[in-house]
Nucleic acid binder design. Structure first.
Lengths: 225, 225
DNA sequence: CCAAAAGTGTTGCACCTACACCCATGA
DNA sequence: TCATGGGTGTAGGTGCAACACTTTTGG
């Protein structure tokens, strides 16, 4: 295939990724936010993100930002591009187009510390976030919408939990993401009838009757769209 | 808000849009394709698309490409960004990121002629397209998937038809987009029970019993996602 | 034995599928 | 009157929502 050059009318823009990374903490859906260390919007909260390197794929950039802007060690269990924000004036520095990604991290990834050039990184409430820089509020909104879609039509909820988990824990994920209460009996019937859970041993909690532990069945894939 | 400049690490890439524009023709779902007039992929079929102008919004660029690469006069009834294709080597000219859009044009927009720098423009079968340039096959696939989603969970089908239409015509749209036959009685029950159709006068066709005409009800909006 | 959380069934309703015949019109 | 396409109803199955009590464990 011939090597050609970009035609003159090709608009050059800054290409960035932003990542809305979700995890459960304290029975609540949290999103990973960083406190910006540089202008514009210094000291404001923002989604982790930044410019894509030359020769770097979009999803690689998303992973890199997640690992350098914060100190998240674990791999995301799910990473998905969901929308591209390209409004002309969304960034005061010039035309910057951001391909927004949705990530889900398993339980146990709640310890983050500042990395890279950010002042801090924290898991904050996804449903009541603080004020955010740029158009990150719109990005977060759309990310939550996509996440809810993937819960109801995919099997994304298990990615929030460790390898083995109980049904009440799984229900807790659903309730936190959907932001409403669910009926215990109906929830169990629905999940168990899907055949995507395999029982293992028992588990004793501090208090109350012990719950059955499950792991995800061998099949059980996440819906495409 | 302070005016700042792009930081040095900002990768500059070519920003493009591609449009998968659909319409009904000959009882079949068609997609608008252009025959490229320039390298790379000269003479190959491709989705209409091109570079975004500086200061131009993404959806404006999509509309402009639709109107200059081809001679489509009517406004699309629906225009929606659905995915961004940014693989490093998707275009031999360099790093070009394309924000792909889905458009639906009403009946009556089937006359297209070449415009701009293309050799030709035609409505071709969306389900059996010819070989396409670049990664446009993947773009078309994803566009059809999104279109099917919008049919089943939104009310997008009416946008393919003139202001007034019959139920058999509407069913034809569903069948063409979903690429399978539907039961006439079940289809009517479902659509009429949604209350998104308003009857108007009768209509006589050349042959057979005349069909009732409908128009879209005042409410009846398209689902977000 | 008490507190706490896990676990369990039934019923009504809404929706979907499968399926075959009559009706209105123009030629 | 015939060919053509429009229009209609029922019955079975499936999935979802509502709803309250019993079981198992640790303290």
């Amino acid at each position: 295939m011939s090597r050609l050059t970009l035609p003159p009318q090709a608009t050059q823009v800054g290409l960035a990724v932003d990542v809305a990374a979700f995890a459960m903490h304290g029975g609540e859906l949290r999103v990973l936010l960083v406190q910006r260390g540089a202008l514009p919007h210094a000291r404001d909260w923002a989604l982790p993100g930044g410019f894509v390197y030359p020769g770097e794929e979009l999803h690689e950039a998303a992973l890199r930002e997640l690992r350098t802007e914060t100190t998240v060690q674990l791999e995301p269990r799910h990473l998905e591009q969901f929308y591209t924000f390209g409004e002309v004036n969304r960034d005061p520095r010039g035309r910057i187009v951001s391909v927004a990604h949705l990530a889900v991290l398993p339980h146990g990834t709640v310890h983050v510390t500042a990395g890279g050039h950010t002042l801090g990184a924290e898991w904050l409430s996804a449903h009541q976030p603080p004020a955010l820089a740029f158009d990150h509020h719109a990005i977060l909104d759309k990310a939550i919408g996509r996440l809810q879609l993937r819960l109801e039509y995919g099997n994304l909820a298990m990615e929030f939990l460790p390898d083995t988990f109980t049904l009440p824990e799984l229900q807790g994920v659903y309730e936190a993401v959907l932001n409403r209460r669910l009926d215990k009996r109906n929830f169990r019937k629905r999940l168990l009838s899907q055949g995507i859970l395999t029982p293992s041993g028992e588990r004793r909690t501090g208090v109350g009757r012990p719950a059955q532990l499950y792991r995800r069945a061998k099949h059980a894939r996440i819906a495409a769209l």
